[in-house]
Amino acid sequence: MKKNTENMFKGLIFISPWIIGFALFQLYPIYKSIYYSFCQYDVLNPPIFIGLKNYSNLFQDEIFLKSIVSTGIYTIMAIPLSMIVSLFFAILLNQKIFGRGIFRTIYFLPSLVPMVALAILWKWMFNGEHGILNYILGLFGIPGPNWLGSTMWATPSIVLTGLWGVGGSIVIYLAALQDVPRSLYEAAEIDGAGWFSKTRHITIPMISPVIYFNLILGIIGCLQVFAVPYIMTAGGPARSTYYYTMYLFDNAFSFLKMGYAGAMAVLLFIIILAITFIVTKMTTSRVYYAEK
């Protein structure tokens, strides 16, 4: 028993840098933002407690509601696309082809580019007049749109930019693909299964936990999308890319409504929690864990 306590104590000491860091830089700010969400607080004056007013105001705030809708649209566009693209490339990169290692590196590289650099680069590629995208479209006689200046094309442009970051999930998929037992494929081949049936009935079910993992991370990432649209469109045109976190940021740091922003943060947390819960419930029967 005594040994146990001692071990526990030593263990705690070893992880104390993390505990202290977490408490100081995560737990305390989280607690504070929850507290401020019930206050009117502008950072420079002491907070005034106003109860649930921030929350009730939020639900009457057109911009807030619009930002939820546009974030939803972005998420619905981005998630399936990025999942399909990353899985597709992972399967391709899992084939035994010449120079596989080089291809894997090439596909992973873009995800190492910092978000800000990426956004600025794509901003030029999407440029209505000088952009390379419209230049290529022009070669085929198609007049390209003003991607980031049009309410219709701005969100798809940001989704496309986001695809550059799929390298991370490709790597995770690849690891999972290599874990699928060869024997299953061999058995299927004996039964006369083709590439498609093998993918459909062996690969996908076997890597389902990883698909689930990428889905959840993808949803969380999309609901918090900030850096790319902040730099590429600053929320425009006409607020078509004014996503949740951008409105939150403006409330906190441009308009100094920390309480209001705190309420938005708390709500975002609840939304993410609820969606994660629903997705988990919906996919439980479809995710295969070997030990079960």
Binding site: N127, G128, E129, H130, N134, P145, N146, L148, G149, S150
Partner: peptide, 10 residues
């Protein structure tokens, strides 16, 4: 609007 936007985006 459209052609003007393209011109000004440049």
């Amino acid at each position: 609007a459209r052609s003007l936007q393209n011109f000004t985006s440049g």
